[in-house]
Amino acid sequence: MHSYRNQHKRKVTVIVAAALIFCLFLSAIAIAALGDRTLGQGSRGSEVKDLQKRLTQLGYQLGKVDGIYGEKTAAAVTRFQKERGLKADGIAGKETIAALKKLTGESQNASGKQVGFKNSDVQLLAQCIYSEGRGEPYVGQVAIGACVMNRIKHPSFPNTIAGIIYQPGAFSAVDDGQINLQPDETAFKAAREAMNGSDPTGGAIYYFNPDKTSNKFIWSRPQIKKIGKHIFAR
């Protein structure tokens, strides 16, 4: 009788302990944050997803944000490391993750208070540039972004980047859905440069591919110059 009770007790203890360990394990997975451990090819989980999200936010194309550290993610990490002067090994260690976190963090005011992200339009402008001008030389891509920026200052157009890009009929890439493609690093660079005020077009507000359009209105605009395949006009 006595031994049976002892045995029973032990059984209960073992079960409770196992359950506890299991719970701890689960919560460890659930609350694992980026930076807790080194990530490399083969890693999986929410931390990898966070890593992928941040890389995508900076314009490093890596395919789907799926939480699996594959070849593409490793390649993106390597590119990031090269551009930041870090050891380029494709493994997301402490240093790499810290740099990534800093660059994707919020802006701060003088007293260190977080005041939000200040570059929300870069993504949309990069999407526009990528969908309208991938394959064009870099300057041609900046030029497309500059056209959007010039329209903001022009009275005939809406006053925001989104207003201009999504104006019905304004960009063919918006009408056929290509605007939703994930832009590459070049498009992001071009978008930043255009938003910074750089304008290789000399004030253009229209551009078109002369081989693909016969639109009389667009041909009637005063032309400024040709960059890549596009003619820029005002």
């Binding site: 009275p155 157009f157 809406p158 006053n159 207003g163 201009i164 999504y166 019905p168 009929g169 209105f217």
Partner: peptide, 27 residues
Amino acid sequence: SIDAVGNLSELPADEVGINYVDTLVNQ
């Protein structure tokens, strides 16, 4: 005026279709 320009840009007009209205309101 700013609101009206926003509304104009949401209507299904041609890109060059409402240039003058846009310009007037913006100005």
